[in-house]
Design a protein around this nucleic acid. Sequence first.
DNA 1: TCAAAAAAGTTAAACGATTTAGCTTTTTAA
DNA 2: TTAAAAAGCTAAATCGTTTAACTTTTTTGA
Lengths: 340, 340
Amino acid sequence: MKKLTLKDVAKELGVSTATISNAFNRPDQLSASKRTEILDACKKIGYTGPNRAAQILRKGQSNIVALILADSLDYMVTDPVASTFIQGVSRVLRENNKHLLLYAGDSESIADVVDFVDGFICYGAPRNPALSQQLNQQSKPVVTVDFNLEGRPAINIDNEKASYEIAKAALTPGDHVAILGLRLIDSPSTCRIYDNPLLNVESSITHRRLDGYCEALKEVGITVDSDWIWSLPENDVVYAVQAAKEVLNSQPRPNVILCMSDIIALELLQCAMSMGIDVPGELKITGFDGIEEASRTRPYLSTVCQSSVEKGMQAASLLLSGENRSLSLSYELKLGETIG
Amino acid sequence: MKKLTLKDVAKELGVSTATISNAFNRPDQLSASKRTEILDACKKIGYTGPNRAAQILRKGQSNIVALILADSLDYMVTDPVASTFIQGVSRVLRENNKHLLLYAGDSESIADVVDFVDGFICYGAPRNPALSQQLNQQSKPVVTVDFNLEGRPAINIDNEKASYEIAKAALTPGDHVAILGLRLIDSPSTCRIYDNPLLNVESSITHRRLDGYCEALKEVGITVDSDWIWSLPENDVVYAVQAAKEVLNSQPRPNVILCMSDIIALELLQCAMSMGIDVPGELKITGFDGIEEASRTRPYLSTVCQSSVEKGMQAASLLLSGENRSLSLSYELKLGETIG
DNA sequence: TCAAAAAAGTTAAACGATTTAGCTTTTTAA
DNA sequence: TTAAAAAGCTAAATCGTTTAACTTTTTTGA
């Protein structure tokens, strides 16, 4: 049996399609009695309401929000920071009867969805820079997180300040310092910077973090050559392990390593311990993010805690509100046992 | 400036709308020369292709697949098992240019999306049983995972057999056994079964697992009273901690505890160790799932390993293929240090 | 009591495409 | 040379709603 349409129902009840439509969408447009009469009849004959596909076309509204994650979903979905972010987003969307479409930041284009979604939340700089452009050229609302898009509302913490502070807390004059960074250069594999040009992603948060570290280093009177800076292509355990081994086997071994994420820091910590290196005696480690696991290790990690759930909730709220203001969220320094 | 429509383009180029449409969708319907001419012109005037919302209505196809997760997204997105499943799904969808809509299993209804999605993947029994009914009544393709829906293709491992095997490996005649189960009864909080009626979710995998345990217990000649069986409402750390404390403080303390998930088992393990209980000397523990963390603990967990990524990939492939066959995936017993 | 205002419904034109059937024109086959 | 087949294109119907504009009926207030 074919699915009923609004037209069928109208014919059946001997009223116009507009009236049926109004019964569902605009109660003020008809008498209460007629409305309940219609709704009851619909239930009886098995009409569950206006077809959503048609509604989307006609109203130009789908109740679907696209969440553009920086990289392929493959990486992102299992990342603890990203997935708690998704958690926050989904919580608010749900409260507002919106639906969540996950979109990979390394996609070719947003053309596939831009016509029907109600808006975008963009989490991190999309791996494919074309997406940023496309996002900015289209007219649906966008909220960016950990990333900036000219003229669009953004949600961030002050990455530079936070990195400065955590670095400052870890550093002592004379330290030999290494930095394990994220996407600082454009390479698909983990590598030391050497003379590679820094990736110029517009207001990338990892560059902000680097700036913060450098500020602190300068203040303490330490210089770090670019070959003591690593760049991992993804915030993933695989790359973290590799980088950890590399840095710990480099001569002379650094006694402070600043990591741009907890994932990296934890892997480094584990690697160091398995090599019998004393943390924080011989090696101090700092992370970034404040994931749960970071407080369960022994010694527990020094890191910058930011609430991803909060970020997600704020992002979704901001998008739904339609306002165009940006938000700077708070963070918290957690000075743990890995810096003594 | 308003967005261009196919009609505008047709007028501009002096051809019919059908031709423009064909240029984008059915190359065989026009000459190659005309096609490139049209496509070039479109690029020039800034027409990016047919409006997707209109396409969805007209074609009845959106390239969107809804993934219904058992519970609220809030719980599910951060669950390691669920999120690796999502990873698998997203990988295959991406390869096929499909998009992923996340849908909560505790939603009121699927009416919001059923009209426009191309199909459903249902991961676990939806918290709201009405969804199962609605899923079965509608005509779009559905693939179920860790859960069965009459007449629909399903993907599972043999939960009963796997549980039987892991239990068998852990048990010795005379053991005092407890079971930490999942959603065995209908309660929003962690509780012992006592005389509560078992939840009768049609072919719930956790009941299968219980059956497997019981089979093994019977064979070894052990009986387990229902008050030594716990039921957690969610596979979440919070409930796991609570249950762990409860069971470890019960008198007489069991010396074997069978857990229906690794999350539960790991929390139990940690709790036991902090209480100074010797594992596996005084207490043997088994888990279920084979999450990564389970192999990183010391002693490492005995569990049933199943590949969630694989499950996700198979589910998506099956859905896209349109076939109606079910799949029984393989699993692997990992007999670790927690059972000695 | 009566004009004006408000309420309740209806009509018909969008929304922006796809697709079938049919009409020309060109190519092929005999 | 001509009939048949193929290619290329168009007109018009359709997908299932929403909504602006309009008509008719009811209510209101002076």
